[in-house]
């Protein structure tokens, strides 16, 4: 089979693989959190059972066409973002768009979900969305600062180029020369993943799981899939930018390691108030990122 055919096969196969692995990530997350809390925890494949159950539920309530389309758009948006990020040396579609394209593709999913939540018309959901967007305004700035520093360092915004420059062992990973940027991006990632100090949008005790408040059955199932892919994509950005990609196996190991760090923080942290979270992003991580950016600009 020639290279193009192989790539197309991977494009079709990769989403399925990532969904399954992402669901295992979520299951592992529950297990690890449980162990940290001195519990036994559910089996690691628990989230797969959850998704099967959610899709087998009958008659979830529907509030209108956009309400149904919202989770679909969220899922599809994440699916297309997935194809624009190289996974384990598989370029997929990433020759057709660079990091900035990916950043904006990543927005389709939350936007679709936000529109769906809007039609649901539950004020809790909308508060959740307003919080999520505010949080996004916070972490996007940090994210962009560290991405710009990587682009400045390599002179390219293409994932494959950046990965290629990091080839040749652990010592070549950008996490070493761009340590401050990587640190800032990891903080931003915590917000992107919605892990603990930054889980205001879905805080179950405050806004009744926020955006998900009206979604049940297969809607929630789609959102679970979206979340599963999202975790892989979001940690994948970090892996590709700072940890040098790697073969398929190592790529997922690295991505899980990034997720694991986020989980550990998640397990022991209380929740910020949304204003505090926003202010936090624009102070410490942004400052760290800016120092990193300035260092890159000077040293280059």
């Amino acid at each position: 089979m020639n290279a193009v055919g192989l790539n197309i096969t991977w494009i079709i196969f990769m989403p399925i693989l990532v969904i399954i692995i992402g669901l295992f990530y979520l299951g592992a997350a529950r297990k690890i959190t449980a162990r940290i809390q001195n519990r036994y925890g559910p089996p690691i494949y628990q989230n797969i059972i959850d998704v099967i159950k959610l899709f087998s539920k009958k008659n979830p309530t529907n509030h209108g066409v956009m309400f149904s389309l919202g989770p679909v758009m969220a899922f599809s948006g994440m699916l297309i973002s997935l194809l624009f990020i190289p996974i384990g040396n598989k370029a997929l579609l990433s020759f057709n768009g660079d990091i900035i394209v990916l950043l904006y593709l990543l927005v389709i999913a939350p936007l679709g979900m936000a529109l769906g939540v809007g039609e649901g018309g539950n004020p809790m959901g909308t508060i959740g969305i307003a919080r999520a967007l505010t949080l996004m305004l916070g972490y996007e700035v940090v994210l962009v600062i560290s991405i710009i520093s990587v682009i400045l360092y390599t002179g390219s915004a293409s994932f494959m180029e950046i990965i290629k420059m990091q080839s040749g062992g652990v010592g070549h990973w950008f996490i070493w020369p761009l340590f401050l940027s990587a640190l800032a991006m990891d903080m931003a990632l915590q917000g992107m993943l919605g892990e603990k100090p930054f889980d205001q949008p879905v805080a179950p005790h405050e806004v009744a799981s926020g955006p998900m408040v009206e979604f049940g059955g297969k809607y929630l199932g789609l959102l679970q899939l979206y979340h599963a892919i999202g975790i892989v994509v979001e940690t994948g950005i970090f892996v590709n930018l700072f940890l040098g990609g790697g073969t398929l196996f190592w790529w997922f190991v690295k991505s899980f390691a990034v997720f694991f760090v986020a989980l550990l923080i998640n397990a022991v942290m209380p929740r910020f108030r949304i204003g505090q979270a926003f202010a936090f992003f624009w102070t410490y991580p942004a400052a760290i990122g800016l120092i990193g950016l300035i260092l890159v600009a000077i040293l280059k």
């Binding site: 009744a208 799981s209 009206e214 929630l220």
Partner: peptide, 9 residues
């Protein structure tokens, strides 16, 4: 535990 009846079984 789930927050809303929409998600609960």
């Amino acid at each position: 535990p789930m927050a809303t009846p929409r998600q609960a079984d």
